[in-house]
Design a binder for these strands. Structure first.
Lengths: 193, 193
DNA sequence: CGGGCCTTTGACTGGTTTCAACTTCTGTGG
DNA sequence: CCACAGAAGTTGAAACCAGTCAAAGGCCCG
């Protein structure tokens, strides 16, 4: 329990055993069954979730009630509606488990206390967000500059695990295209090879 | 000089006069004329740039040698190729001045020293990146879920200054559509009103 | 074994790109 | 100060690509 999280932390910012225990005292475990929700649009996001095991997705819903997947989070990744978490506004995203999952929650209270009491935690958070920012920028760059075919190939190369564990229509949603189009893209790639 | 930057810093994380002076000793001013480059693809990004005055853009170039604008930075905003800055890899973005501009540079060396010596700097950086991350996430969500018309309206409402200071074809590039399409979108909006 | 969801495939439609021409605006040099 | 070249923006027509709607086949789960 907490192993994956604490190791990820330790890897970025080395921890003594005492610090490890200290951090741990702020954490909360949570299990989610497939299709259960961690967060619904309209709620306030009260915690950052780190995935120890399983897979989640966050998504928003537009005016036509079409879902658009914002992020997938497999083991070792963090997921939340950061805006809602930080401001206390109601969330614009839903977060749902795609598989039975085990999470580590850092509540807002714990987060703020850790920030105040433990510089290493702030460093860890800074590094996490920086990494997330860079990844997001890459994704955006790809979204506006590469064709669907190439985008899919790049995605498949970068995240083979997601491809295997997530249904196709969700990949399509993540890419911002329809399931039908993704199906045709895949056919074209297979034949073209 | 440095006023805008130091005030932005102070606003997020209050500083004493001594701290203000301390931070300042790590900064470097830089002026750029319109159309001059801060960074070219292939260089390594050696500094984060904070815009005191003026306007810059960052963009990447795809296989068809089409430009795609990643970011605009007006006064008070930060711009860089963060990935290149942090890893030392060659940059994938170009950064160009759209107007005569005055920048504050934080070199990699200064950045690391400040991170080590001044917890408030780390906090400031964390807050900056968090804000940038949330903004980027909003943009991505908009890009995959909203029609061009609505996107343009939202952009115009959110960033009226950019609209007035940046040529239309760059807005189009930022939105990921052709200048012709943007022109038609605008016409439709004006008539439709 | 049956039902429902997912994926694939086809035909049609609509919006975007592309290419080209024309106008407007701007900055520069004569 | 005017003339002109180049860039920026607008408009039109044709081609193309993705979306939509509909239907059929496959697969998993109950």
């Amino acid at each position: 329990m907490y192993e994956v999280f604490l190791n990820a932390f330790h890897e970025k910012v080395p921890l003594t055993d005492a610090e490890r225990a200290f951090v741990q005292s702020f954490l909360m475990p949570k299990k989610l069954r497939r299709k259960q929700y961690l967060l619904q649009e309209g709620d306030v996001c009260k915690a950052i979730a780190f995935v120890e095991k399983g897979a989640l997705r966050s998504y928003c819903v537009d005016d036509n009630s079409t879902e658009h997947i914002v992020q997938f989070a497999l083991e070792g990744r963090t997921i939340s509606d950061l805006y809602s978490f930080l401001t206390g506004e109601t969330a614009t995203y839903h977060i749902e488990a795609l598989e039975d999952s085990e999470l580590v929650l850092i509540t807002k209270q714990a987060h703020e206390e850790l920030l105040g009491k433990m510089p290493k935690y702030e460093t860890f958070i800074r590094l996490q967000i920086t990494g997330a920012y860079i990844a997001l920028q890459k994704r955006l760059t790809a979204a506006i500059s590469i064709s669907n075919d190439e985008r899919y190939k790049a995605f498949a190369a970068a995240y083979p695990e997601i491809l295997q564990r997530v249904p196709q229509h969700m990949i399509a949603s993540y890419m911002g295209i329809t399931p039908e189009t993704l199906s045709r893209v895949r056919r074209k790639i297979v034949r073209g090879k």
